[in-house]
C-alpha cells in the first residue's frame, strides 16, 4: 500500500495531504514552523574536536545538547554512532527538585539524576560534545555530571565544552548548537535556561582536573572553547 498516488481525485486531496504528512511527507519550512533563526559561527575548538574523531569509523559520540538533526547527520555521516542526551532538560526537570536543608529552600536530587540519566557503561564513548552545559546546569549537578562524563569516556577520548566569559552577562541567552560542518556551527536561541555562573580559566582547569590535557580557544561572542582529552 502506498500513501502517495498521482491519480488521486481532487476531493481526496486534503485527506491525501494529511496522509502525506503521516507517511513520509516533507517538513514545513522554517518560517512556517516559527523556529528561531540560526546564527552561523566559526569554531576553532570544534574544528580541533572533529580532527580527533575522523578515524576510525564506528566511534561512539555523545551529544549532550538538545536533539539536533544536523549534529546527528554530521556524526553519522562520519560513520560514527551518535548518542543524544539532553542533559540540561533532564537536569532542570521539576521532578528533580527536592526540599533543601534550609527551610523553604529547594535543591536538586543529584542521586536521582545520576540514577536516571547519563547511564552508560564506563569508557563507552570516544568523544563527548558538552557544549555550554556546565554554565546552565544547577550548581549541585555540575561536579557529578563532569565526573560521570569522565567515567563514561574512553581514555584519550575527546570532549568539547564551551564557557561564557564574565562579559557575557547573566542574561546571556541559551543557544542550541547545530553542526554545519567541521568549521562552522549554527546557534539557535532557546529553549530558555538561565546562565547559572561563569567560570574563570582556573575554575575550568579545576573542574576537569582528572582529564589528561586541556586546551583553550578564544571563541567569539564572549565564549571560550575548551578541548579536553581524557
Amino acid at each position: 500500500m502506498r500513501a502517495h498516488r498521482s491519480d488521486t481525485p481532487n476531493l481526496a486531496r486534503s485527506a491525501l495531504g494529511f496522509f502525506r504528512n503521516i507517511f513520509g511527507g516533507g517538513a514545513e519550512p522554517a518560517s512556517a514552523t516559527g523556529e528561531a533563526a540560526r546564527i552561523p559561527r566559526r569554531s576553532t575548538g570544534f574544528n580541533q574536536f572533529t580532527r580527533t574523531i575522523l578515524r576510525p569509523d564506528g566511534q561512539k559520540i555523545l551529544d549532550l545538547g538538545p536533539t539536533s538533526s544536523s549534529n546527528i547527520n554530521f556524526l553519522t555521516g562520519l560513520g560514527h554512532k551518535a548518542y543524544n542526551e539532553d542533559v540540561l532538560a533532564a537536569g532542570n526537570a521539576s521532578r528533580l527538585v527536592i526540599p533543601g536543608t534550609e527551610e523553604g529552600s529547594t535543591t536538586v536530587d543529584v542521586a536521582r539524576f545520576l540514577s536516571e540519566d547519563l547511564q552508560y557503561d564506563p569508557e563507552t564513548f570516544d568523544a563527548v560534545l558538552m557544549w555550554d552545559v556546565c554554565d546552565y546546569l544547577p550548581e549541585p549537578l555540575v561536579k557529578p555530571v563532569v565526573e560521570r562524563i569522565y567515567q563514561i569516556t574512553k581514555p584519550r577520548g575527546a570532549m568539547l565544552a564551551f564557557f561564557h566569559t564574565r562579559e557575557a552577562g547573566v542574561e546571556a541567552p541559551y543557544y542550541r548548537y547545530h553542526i554545519k560542518d567541521e568549521n562552522l556551527l549554527e546557534l539557535q536561541q532557546g529553549p530558555h535556561f538561565q546562565l547559572k555562573r561563569t567560570f574563570q580559566n582556573r575554575h575550568v582547569e579545576g573542574l576537569f582536573h582528572d582529564f589528561n590535557s586541556i586546551k583553550f580557544f578564544l571563541g567569539k561572542e564572549n565564549i571560550r572553547e575548551v578541548l579536553l582529552l581524557r
Binding site: A27, T67, Y83, D86, A89
Partner: peptide
C-alpha cells in the same frame, strides 16, 4: 535513513 524534525525529543543512540 533518519529524519528528525526540530522539536523532537530523543534520548538514545542512532546507528545508521
Amino acid at each position: 535513513r533518519i529524519v528528525i524534525e526540530d522539536g523532537a525529543f530523543f534520548k538514545g543512540a542512532i546507528d545508521i
